[in-house]
């Protein structure tokens, strides 16, 4: 028996579409039903064949998301996900060759105090950063959260994973921001929200396989 999936494929399986895998909920299509209209539809709205977004209305020529041309049936830019990488805001600075960065926040912290860290994601190349701010938010790279350091390549990180704070005496500490998978310092789980003092050599383990090592703390 043939079924129709939400994307309009005709499926030979009755639980999930045998083409695209979407869960099937509708009743089986009658055996005598007319063939589905060529463009896939959901609730009467046509779907963009490139990015599967609903067409704004039947007269809209271009897809609102990928700019696919419904009239001429061409175009549509579907951007592939970027490769895993560590990206950073201007307040974290790469040591050595790397992307050009403005050291503006260093100027904003006249004391010049900083903590140098090394980040390794999934056993990859170690990347060095300097944290200049009083508070540095580190987590899975996000466009919606203002992070000091956004890490890609580890899906188990929270967007708000840890906060590294410089205390009034110049020492640094880390606290876990109640992340789903927790944070370890030197192999021991830290309680969410509790400041854990940091010293050079400490290893902060977060997400599935991200290691952040404290390389240096400068008080000047």
């Amino acid at each position: 028996m043939s079924m129709k999936c939400p994307d309009g494929h005709s499926s030979t399986a009755s639980d999930f579409c045998s083409e695209c895998g979407l869960a099937l909920t509708s009743a089986p299509a009658p055996a005598t039903a007319a063939p589905a209209p060529a463009p896939a539809t959901t609730g009467g709205r046509e779907k963009c064949p490139k990015c599967h977004t609903d067409r704004d209305d039947a007269s809209a020529q271009f897809c609102g998301v990928c700019a696919y041309d419904f009239v001429n049936k061409v175009g549509g830019n579907v951007v592939p996900p970027p490769p895993p990488a560590v990206t950073l805001s201007p307040s974290a600075v790469v040591d050595g060759p790397g992307p050009e960065l403005k050291r503006q926040t260093q100027a904003a912290t006249p004391s010049g105090a900083r903590m140098d860290i090394e980040v390794v994601v999934n056993g990859g190349t170690p990347l060095k950063f300097s944290l200049f701010d009083e508070e540095s938010l580190i987590g899975r790279k996000s466009t919606s959260v203002a992070q000091t350091l956004g890490i890609e390549g580890d899906g188990a990180l929270a967007r708000r994973q840890i906060m590294i704070t410089r205390q009034s005496d110049g020492s640094y500490s880390v606290r876990d921001l109640d992340s789903a998978n927790g944070t370890k310092v030197n192999g021991t789980d830290v309680k969410p929200g509790i400041e854990q003092p940091l010293k050079v050599g400490d290893v902060i383990a977060v997400g599935e396989f991200t290691r952040i090592t404290v390389k240096a703390i400068r008080q000047s």
Partner: peptide, 18 residues
């Protein structure tokens, strides 16, 4: 999954392998 095969938030469950 290729970008076009990624489901939407709130969308139906998708079978990714049998």
């Amino acid at each position: 999954l290729e970008p076009t095969a990624i489901g939407k938030v709130g969308g139906p469950e998708k079978l990714c392998a049998r």
